[in-house]
């Protein structure tokens, strides 16, 4: 009797080394380039054929993709669980809003200024919390945006509960679209490169075993602070940008959505890949537009998706697809 079993093999290319390929044919080159090039091209061409409503959705998706990348970078590479992406977002948003509202600075300047200033501020706020681990850091990040929210509510500064309205818009939908998509792609590929550099190795070392990193004479808090700054940069940019797209900033900038959706996107897309976060955002955000009619049920849906993926498919979609792409299967006789 002949029984058969399924054998999984990894494709020969890109197995043995990380960066030396023997590229002998266009087929092999395509094999390597296609998974990067095709999504980029689709991303850049898609807005040209979409109706205005869906162009707005793409903008929104890009914002969440940035926040998701930021979350994944913090979580997977430094081990810091942030339950406060809304902090980064909100600080960036309010900075841009107040710069434009009180000092009448144009969006071309407010966005870069509030990106950098916002990231600096967030890093300073969280700096003392960096020595805390696990749930304690998570608690601080959960609490901080709420503090800001309540303070703004209680003191009625920065527009109070009404927010700041009639802010300057960005010049045109095309700039809005390609600015966010461009920044998102740059952030994605820059961070993917960064985490594989020696700097990234140190961060991953801190995630694995911080004692050993200390023992190696490296100040782990300095590295954590740098990682935090990078993550905050992305979040603050997203906040500042969306403020000018909406021409409004209000208490909703500290809303829980900006925390939950990035986590959901990353968990669904696959943690530790950065690309997975973007994939997740581009699945979840448009999907939630489709489900808009259901109102609060969207958050239920997101939340349940997080739970289901965390227990049933912790690797996420991106890792799964990557594995399938690199492997081939065949039946062999035993």
């Amino acid at each position: 009797m002949v029984s058969r079993r399924r054998e999984r093999l990894e494709r020969g290319i890109k197995v043995r080394t990380d960066d030396v390929y023997a590229l002998c044919s266009t087929k092999e080159m395509l094999y390597l380039v296609a998974p990067r090039l095709i999504p980029i091209l689709v991303l850049l061409l898609l807005p040209l054929i979409l109706p205005t409503y869906w162009q707005k959705v793409v903008i929104f998706t890009g914002v969440f993709a940035l926040l998701s990348i930021s979350w994944d970078f913090l979580y997977s590479f430094t081990g810091l669980v942030s339950l406060g992406q809304a902090l980064f977002f909100g600080v960036g948003a309010y900075l841009a809003g107040s710069l434009n509202h009180y000092f009448d600075i144009s969006p071309g300047l407010t966005i870069p200024i509030s990106t950098i200033a916002g990231a600096t501020l967030c890093t300073l706020f969280l700096l003392p919390a960096l020595r805390l681990r696990g749930i304690y850091f998570a608690m601080i990040t959960l609490v901080l945006p709420l503090i800001f929210l309540r303070i703004i509510e209680a003191t009625a500064i920065l527009g109070g509960t009404d927010g700041l309205t009639a802010l300057a818009p960005l010049p045109g939908i095309w700039i809005e679209l390609y600015l966010i998509l461009g920044i998102m792609l740059v952030a994605l590929f820059a961070l993917r490169r960064l985490v594989n550099s020696d700097f990234g190795l140190v961060l991953r070392g801190i995630h694995d075993n911080d004692q050993a990193v200390k023992g190696a004479g490296i100040n782990i808090y300095w590295y954590k602070a740098q990682a935090l700054f990078i993550a905050a940069l992305l979040g603050s940019f997203a906040g500042a940008y969306l403020t000018h797209v909406y021409m409004f900033v209000g208490l909703s900038a500290f809303a829980l959505d900006f925390t939950v959706v990035p986590i959901a996107a990353t968990v669904v897309g696959g943690m530790g890949t950065l690309g997975g976060s973007v994939l997740g955002a581009f699945i979840l955000v448009p999907l939630s537009e489709v489900l808009r009619a259901f109102g609060p049920l969207r958050i239920v849906f997101y939340a349940l998706l997080i739970v289901v993926f965390i227990i049933l498919k912790p690797e996420g979609l991106f890792n799964y697809l990557q594995r399938k792409y690199r492997e081939f299967e065949r039946w062999v006789e035993v």
């Binding site: 020696d198 190795l201 140190v202 070392g205 694995d208 075993n209 050993a212 190696a216 490296i218």
Partner: peptide
């Protein structure tokens, strides 16, 4: 050790 990294990459951290 840093389990996910190859053995020699483990030394990159102190070397950095």
């Amino acid at each position: 050790p840093f389990y996910h990294l190859p053995a020699f990459k483990n030394l990159i951290v102190p070397l950095y």
